[in-house]
Amino acid sequence: TRVETATETAWISLVTALHLVLGLSAVLGLLLLRWQFPAHYRRLRHALW
């Protein structure tokens, strides 16, 4: 049971790290898009909202 718990903890930390990385890359990508294509971003936002 001790090994299982350790594996579970490792998986949880791995998944958390993955989610953090994905979230950060998504935010960075959005910022980059907004910085590179302001007109396109505004049009996209206008279409979405």
Rank of each mutant, 00 (worst) to 15 (best):
S25A: 13
I12P: 03
L30Q: 02
A47D: 03
V3R: 01
L28M: 11
L33F: 04
L18S: 02
H46A: 05
T7K: 14
V3H: 00
A10F: 02
R43Y: 06
T1D: 07
L33A: 14
L44H: 08
W11F: 10
L18A: 04
A10D: 06
P38M: 15
F37H: 08
T7W: 11
T5L: 01
V3S: 02
T1C: 11
L20Q: 04
R34K: 15
L22K: 01
V21I: 12
V15F: 03
L18H: 02
L14H: 03
W35K: 15
P38D: 15
T7D: 07
L20F: 13
Y41D: 03
G23K: 05
A6V: 03
Y41R: 05
I12Q: 08
T7P: 10
E8W: 02
S25V: 12
L30A: 12
E8Y: 05
S13C: 11
T7E: 05
A26N: 04
L33Q: 07
S25G: 06
R43L: 08
A6Q: 13
V27L: 13
S13K: 04
H19S: 02
V15A: 01
F37E: 00
F37R: 07
L20I: 14
V15L: 10
W11E: 00
L22I: 12
G29F: 13
A26G: 14
R43N: 06
Y41C: 15
S25H: 05
L24F: 14
A26Q: 02
L44T: 07
R34E: 01
H19Y: 04
W11G: 01
L30I: 13
I12D: 00
S13V: 11
V3N: 00
A10M: 04
L22E: 04
L24G: 06
T9C: 06
G29I: 11
W35F: 15
T16Y: 02
L14I: 10
L31G: 03
P38F: 10
R45T: 08
V27G: 10
T9R: 14
R42V: 07
I12S: 04
Q36L: 11
L30Y: 07
G29K: 04
L48P: 00
S13T: 13
L30V: 12
V3Y: 00
W35A: 15
G23A: 14
R45G: 04
A26D: 03
R2E: 12
T7G: 08
E4L: 10
L28C: 05
V3M: 07
A6L: 08
Q36F: 06
H19K: 03
R45S: 04
T1L: 14
P38I: 09
G29M: 13
A47H: 08
V27P: 04
T1Y: 13
L44S: 02
E4G: 09
R42E: 08
G29D: 07
W11T: 01
L14M: 12
H19A: 04
L31W: 13
L24N: 00
E4D: 08
G23I: 14
S13D: 06
W35H: 15
S13W: 15
A26T: 09
R34L: 05
R42K: 11
V21G: 06
W35S: 15
T1N: 08
I12R: 07
S13A: 12
V3P: 00
W35T: 15
A17C: 13
A39S: 14
H40I: 08
S13E: 01
H46M: 04
A39Q: 14
T1R: 10
A6D: 07
S13Q: 10
L30T: 09
A39L: 14
L44G: 03
L14A: 04
F37N: 02
A39D: 12
A47E: 06
V21E: 04
A47Y: 11
Q36E: 09
W35I: 15
L44F: 15
R2L: 13
Y41T: 14
L20W: 01
I12E: 01
V15T: 07
T5A: 01
R2H: 13
H40V: 08
T9A: 11
W49R: 03
R42I: 07
L22W: 03
A17L: 12
W35D: 03
E4I: 10
H19E: 06
V3K: 02
W49C: 06
R34D: 00
T7N: 13
A39P: 04
T5Y: 04
V27M: 14
V27I: 14
L33H: 00
H46Q: 13
G23P: 08
H40T: 08
I12M: 08
R43E: 04
A47S: 11
E4W: 11
Q36P: 09
H40S: 09
W11M: 06
A10R: 10
V27T: 11
A17E: 02
R45N: 00
L28F: 09
E8A: 01
L28V: 02
G23M: 13
G29L: 14
V15Y: 01
R43P: 09
A10Q: 12
L44W: 07
A6Y: 01
T5N: 02
L18W: 09
W11I: 06
W49S: 03
T5C: 01
H46R: 11
R34W: 02
P38H: 15
W49V: 06
I12V: 12
I12C: 03
W49E: 05
R42M: 11
T7I: 13
